[in-house]
Nucleic acid binder design. Structure first.
Lengths: 128, 128
DNA sequence: ATAATTATTGAGAACAGTTATCAATAAAGG
DNA sequence: CCTTTATTGATAACTGTTCTCAATAATTAT
């Protein structure tokens, strides 16, 4: 008798799945509270549990608060220092290289987080 | 008349350079205070400035407090979930791949942080 | 169905790490 | 030296997160 399904938990996951902007917990909380009564402790609790369960990914940000991502596909992120957005970066060769490292260095890699800091393509275009 | 040299600032940088365990600010503070009078606000202030100046790297940890690194060479990190240590990972092919991504995606990458989570070679050996 | 059990919730207190405040100190330059 | 002003140290304030605990509600047993 563990890990019950509650409407709050479902609401939190649904909200994150719809939000493709890698929201913080506070941002998630605001969206959810607008639709339904939820305590923010509940959002914190469920988020960390869902991260443990692998339902959701946490993105540790260099200067600030963690962000969350319901997209579990193998991808990376770029935080743009112009517009501040966190963009998805997909690349199929990077995982191969990481597997090579895993073998060469005799380590076991369970999770990879790659955070690039720089300027996104949109902002680069505008600069010209 | 900006950016003066103080003995505190020097002390902080020296201490970080000697500590190869990617200490947190609190850990740094304890080491420094043992030798000399320093306020912890001073350590916080100088660390964030030194990160801005590029003298030092900040490592955003997934579950917890940021760690710092005075080794500016191009390398990555593995946090071991057995021993908890943060190990350096050097690989010369990864930067090439990232430069390829930079070109392909039309983005500008100023900084790359790669944090692998898993088990270090020492702990893997012990497990057998 | 109904009752019993217990995981989950919500509100707020507590906590940890970090930043801001401000008078005192001490670098840097004249 | 003397002046200027960046930096320091102590502490208060702040922010994001976790903890506490009684109330609630999801599951299991009756």
């Amino acid at each position: 008798m563990k890990n019950r399904n509650t409407k709050q938990k479902q609401m939190i996951l649904d909200t994150l799945k719809k939000d493709h902007n890698h929201p913080t917990i506070q941002e998630l909380f605001e969206q959810i509270v607008a639709q339904e009564e939820v305590g923010q402790a509940t959002v914190y609790r469920n988020m960390s549990r869902m991260v443990e369960e692998g339902l959701v990914n946490k993105i540790a940000m260099p200067n600030g608060v963690d962000r969350y991502d319901a997209d579990l596909s193998n991808h990376y992120h770029l935080v743009c220092r112009k517009c501040g957005r966190l963009m998805d970066i997909f690349d199929d060769k990077l995982p191969e290289r990481l597997m090579k490292i895993e073998k060469d260095k005799h380590i076991q890699i369970d999770n990879t987080s790659i955070l690039l800091e720089g300027i996104c393509s949109d902002c680069l275009k505008k600069e010209e």
